[in-house]
């Protein structure tokens, strides 16, 4: 097989993209404080150090609280929006949906600064609560995109059939609609969780004195001696993200199969 220049380009592109991420675990297990080759030896010491850093635990707890709240909040709102969009016709539908999707393309710095200005004007202090608000805004487009896929393949007469067979509207939703869109809900929860967990800019602007994990990581970069610990934490975060993303996509695909739709590529 002849190797085309495009294949070479693609190979270089992938190396450029992922080499830094591969370096992360490499130095996380390296027995030396200086981030440079040659590697010195294998150690789990940096991971052990993570356990003895109370400030880190606090940041982790903050991040988890925020990510869980955002996942639930964005998915619930996304559920309403996705059902409304796929099921009903109403004026300005396209415009409203466009506005919800806008954070997807707006520069995050702009969104973060605007949010900060608004919150200041309203007299609300930056806290975990404000980060939750910011992240929900950011996650809504993803939640809607995923859930819309689940609802789009849903035959309206399924719900009518359930009612026709004796169920109430609420019963029909619980027994028929919900089970069919559940994979989509789980996928949305996981994706929103990861996005919130990894997000830095909005968290940085809105965190006040309650840092999230990425904000804490950024703070640690000022101390060269702490660098390997940062690498260790980064390794954990990257692994967690990849695992959750894979699980989320498995659920999303299962959902599509359930409603009899064919695969149309990833959701991103």
């Amino acid at each position: 097989m002849k190797r085309s220049p495009l294949a070479l380009f693609a190979g270089l592109y992938l190396i450029f993209l992922y080499a830094p991420i591969i370096l992360l675990p490499l130095f996380a297990f390296n027995d030396g404080t200086i981030i440079a080759f040659p590697l010195r030896g294998f150690t789990l010491g940096w991971f052990a150090d993570l356990a003895n850093t109370p400030a880190l635990h606090e940041a982790t707890l903050n991040s988890l609280i925020i990510a869980c709240s955002v996942a639930v909040l964005a998915t619930c709102l996304g559920l309403f929006a996705a059902r409304a969009v796929t099921r009903y016709k109403f004026p300005l539908k396209g415009g409203i949906l466009g506005f919800i999707m806008l954070p997807l393309v707006l520069p995050e710095v702009i969104v973060a600064i605007s949010l900060l200005v608004v919150l200041m004007q309203l007299g609300i202090n930056a806290s975990i609560f404000t980060i939750i608000l910011g992240h929900t805004l950011l996650c809504m487009p993803f939640a809607i995109a995923i859930l819309q896929g689940s609802f789009a393949g849903l035959d309206v007469s399924l719900e009518e059939a359930a009612v026709d067979l004796g169920e109430t509207r609420a019963g029909a939703f619980r027994l028929v609609i919900l089970p069919i869109v559940t994979p989509g809900i789980i996928a949305s929860l996981l994706i929103c969780f990861i996005i919130s967990l990894d997000e830095f800019i909005i968290a940085f602007f809105l965190s006040g004195n309650e840092p999230t994990l990425p904000v804490y990581l950024w703070g640690q970069l000022r101390f060269p001696a702490r660098l390997p610990v940062v690498m260790a934490l980064g390794t954990i975060l990257v692994t967690l993200s990849i695992v959750l993303l894979i699980v989320a996509d498995i659920f999303r695909r299962r959902g599509l199969r359930r409603t009899g739709q064919s695969e149309t590529g990833g959701f991103l």
Binding site: S157, L158, E160, A162, V176, P179, R258
Partner: peptide, 11 residues
Amino acid sequence: MVFQSYAIFPH
């Protein structure tokens, strides 16, 4: 009712 799409519950 028997619906045009049959509306068989897929799950």
